[in-house]
Write a protein that binds this DNA or RNA. Structure first.
Lengths: 209, 209
DNA sequence: TCGTATGTTGTACTGCAATTACAAACCAGT
DNA sequence: ACTGGTTTGTAATTGCAGTACAACATACGA
């Protein structure tokens, strides 16, 4: 696995949609060759095989996410605000790259069995959240919870599943607007919960139960 | 795909761990034959191939989850309480069957490409939650949110990712205790959120609900 | 200009594993 | 014992990933 020339790298993206659609199994190396215009022999010259194609595409996605989230997280705001920004950032990248997301979901199993990717996955998705939750307790902007690990995981799940689903359901014409909208819903859930009682803004106009 | 005899069905579970460990790709039909004691030819007589093995195992898991959640959901309590019960139920089944869960995560892509399973997945995980959120708004036990679909998805993600991760991380000696513990954390997140306090001009917290 | 190193690509080949074919048992139930 | 479903061993058959390799291209320094 040398470091693949830029031109080939960009051509390789032509395979993303194919893989997203049919899964890696359902995609022959020949198909990838045809879709990208890179001959099979050349693919094998640079990459170690089919998995490596997926690995290349996904590690790129994960880097983008980790990067965007990283920026969001390193502002000077309090942890709560940064978490909100991180949600927007993550969803933004995901909705920007629906095919890569679909490929990721579709071959999640393979991805988690590729050691590099497993790490990148953790780094992109889970670790920033875990950190923010800890920061939030420290700076008082988030509540202390009894089981931070489990909660971080749930928050991660809430964001990621919503984002993945949105990405899978159909590319939109304005991804970043969608990201903002979606992340507003998610943040509301994460911060304020669903219970009727501790409510913000207005008091429950309805009757007491 | 006739309905496979009970004896074979039970033997087939012997393949779950194998598939969980190595993924369906990494598992040869011969391996499955050996692990289950069912000869290859017999497997092919009853099932349509490797995918069908996975499909059988997973649809069973999903039925169990849908069943347990269904019971939890149909009690006479308010929606919030039922949602809490549903979380416990779902996590209970998941932690009870770690290998199947691992197989599910690992081959999620295949699963979602198997139409029957995709439906079962929806029915087991997502639909009950969606319903409960609506019920909760109706009976006043849950808050009205602007985008119920996205929120239901996030709640689903929060529960499922936490459960899946717990299942993947290692079988425990007391799954149902773990399920209760874990679901307490998740419910707390879902209902009360992470904000330090209900923000932005709150109804007096003391005034009883 | 040549030589060497490095990348590119076509073509043929190897090998593995899924699936299929098939025939020989093996059971009921009648 | 006959029949119709099941069970299983033993070959094929097939499709595709990965490999081998030779011919060609390009660059670059001597």
């Amino acid at each position: 696995m040398r470091k693949l020339p830029a031109k080939l790298a960009s051509q390789l993206y032509g395979a993303a949609e194919l893989i997203a659609e049919r899964g890696l199994d359902g995609t022959k190396i020949e198909d990838i060759a045809e879709a990208t215009g890179i001959p099979k022999a050349t693919i094998y010259y640079h990459l170690d095989g089919k998995n490596a194609v997926l690995e290349f595409l996904l590690s790129d996605l994960l880097d983008m996410i980790a990067g965007a989230v990283g920026v969001a997280v390193s502002s000077a705001e309090d942890a709560r605000t940064r978490l909100e920004a991180a949600v927007v950032a993550q969803l933004g990248v995901m909705l920007e790259h629906p095919f890569l997301c679909r490929a990721l979901v579709g071959d999640l199993g393979r991805a988690t069995r590729l050691p590099e990717l497993a790490l990148a996955l953790r780094a992109a998705f889970y670790e920033p959240i875990e950190q923010l939750l800890a920061d939030g307790v420290a700076d008082g902007s988030l509540r202390q919870v009894p089981n931070p690990g489990a909660v971080a995981l749930s928050v991660f799940g809430a964001i990621t599943v919503a984002g993945l689903t949105a990405a899978v359901e159909g590319p939109s014409d304005d991804p970043s607007a969608d990201a903002v909208r979606l992340s507003a819903s998610i943040s509301e859930l994460i911060f304020d919960g669903l219970a009727t009682r501790p409510r913000r803004g207005d008091c429950e106009p309805g009757d007491g139960a």
